[in-house]
Design a protein around this nucleic acid. Structure first.
Length: 228
DNA sequence: GGCCAGGACACCA
DNA sequence: TGGTGTCATGGC
């Protein structure tokens, strides 16, 4: 593959996925606050387990800033058991809620008044929020431009031969932002498309005959988003 | 019964 | 500073 072709591949992949799956621009969640909670709960966890924890919080009327702000981690933990690592994530949720209250008056929408870089620095200073979680919140809850790099993204593009797969987060992020238009909607949709590819085509069982990247997949010699 | 999942952090050399 | 262990449930 030529250097020029490789540089255009992220855009090619996006267009293929967009044509196959349609526009997504999504993060599962009914409110921006739910997006933030989901971004923390999904750390190293399968999404169906996160959905159960979100449903548990919702049924307890705790899936809001006001619902969580007065709870101790020990009180949050039983509500999010199904998301795994519940004691750890309860502390992280409590830390985020405290941050949201002190920095933005408990309003997720107020985060959008900051620029993406400033918001990112603030989020990274919160216990339990790393680069991916911060960028998910910035892009999908605040609607500001940060490209989200997750395990699926690394896996797909390393198997296309464009990434080693173990580069530092920010280096992988630059790989994409250098090759795609600076467009919040496109970046949000791109990440959503990668996740849809992983969930609808590659997992739990590969359905490679339905993969819109089948020819590229052949180049990679194995299903693009599968662990094995 | 073992592996894995849309990470992040504490700890140690 | 980089590598390793830990968190922990639920699906397959």
């Amino acid at each position: 593959m030529s250097r020029t072709a490789a540089s255009k591949l992220p855009g090619v992949v996006y267009q293929r996925l967009r044509t196959r799956f349609g526009h997504a621009a999504w993060w599962p969640g009914q409110t921006a606050f739910e997006v933030c909670v989901g971004a923390i709960l999904v750390q190293n966890t399968a999404w169906p387990n996160v959905e159960k924890a979100l449903a548990s919080l919702r049924s307890a009327r705790r899936l809001s800033y006001r619902g969580l702000r007065d709870l101790e981690p020990a009180q949050i933990a039983p509500l999010i058991r199904s998301a795994g690592s519940f004691n750890v994530k309860a502390r992280r949720l409590a830390a985020f809620v405290a941050f949201l209250g002190s920095e933005y008056g408990g309003r997720v929408a107020a985060m959008s008044a900051d620029d993406a870089g400033t918001l990112r620095l603030k989020l990274l200073a919160v216990h339990g929020i790393g680069p991916e979680t911060a960028d998910s919140i910035i892009l999908y809850a605040a609607g500001l431009p940060r490209f989200v790099v997750d395990a699926y993204t690394r896996r797909v593009f390393s198997r296309l031969g464009l990434l080693a797969g173990d580069e530092p987060y920010d280096q992988v992020q630059r790989f994409f932002t250098d090759r795609l238009p600076r467009d919040v909607d496109l970046w949000a949709d791109f990440h959503a498309q990668i996740v849809k590819l992983a969930k609808d085509i590659c997992r739990p069982r590969p359905r490679c005959d339905q993969c819109p990247l089948l020819d590229l997949c052949d180049f990679a010699q194995r299903p693009l988003a599968c662990k094995t």
